[in-house]
Amino acid sequence: MGLEPAGASVAGVAVLAGVLGLDVVSFPQAMISRPIVAATVAGALAGSPVAGLACGAALECLALETLPVGASRYPEWGSASAVAGAVAATGAGPLSLPHPGMFVVAVVAGIVAGWYGGESMSWHRRLIARFARRRLGRLAEGDRRTVYALQAFGIGADLLRGALNGLLFFLPARATALWVSARWSLPGDLTRAVTITAVAAVAAAALWIDFHAISGTRRLFLLSLTLGTLLVVIGV
């Protein structure tokens, strides 16, 4: 099989997951936490940016479905993509796509870690609220040290939250992926087809719903979809 468990170090994934988790809401929201970026970086860390990119593109299709609006709950794709990208890259060459079994488990790990990450964001917000509640008096007095302390606490706790999310999921996900890959029996192209059909359908459905809001947009989508399919067939 040639799948080596070597790759990204646990510490590396944890640090990356912390930084990417922080980007989702707290700092700096530059969208380095989007799966297509985060999983690629994690894949590069594990030795295969292309495998990370393929996994990131799959998770990006799922991320198109969720809008990170204010207090709403949504999967936290930053730290989750760090886990998924590092798992997908395990055993893959620098320029090769991930092993089919690794790919499926990486996407599953990304979804589960993303869901858990979304829950942990909610706990994090409650934790800051508790910290803030005890200091509302000093905030009302205009104490700048309290303002700074709240910011530092929130950002520090979020960094830790993302790193813990990475730690919690990376080792079990990688171990599961190695175990699954060793027993994988479905043909590689069929495995990829199932995974890609699922994520592409989610993206298409989400976009179809979103495009409803602007007149003529669905027609444009269908026209360009036809053109895109033709480009694939003629081999662009």
């Binding site: 707290s26 700092f27 700096p28 800051i128 803030a132 509640r133 950002i155």
Partner: peptide, 11 residues
Amino acid sequence: LAIQGSWNYEI
């Protein structure tokens, strides 16, 4: 860039 650094359900 850190305006949501202490985003919470209280304030």
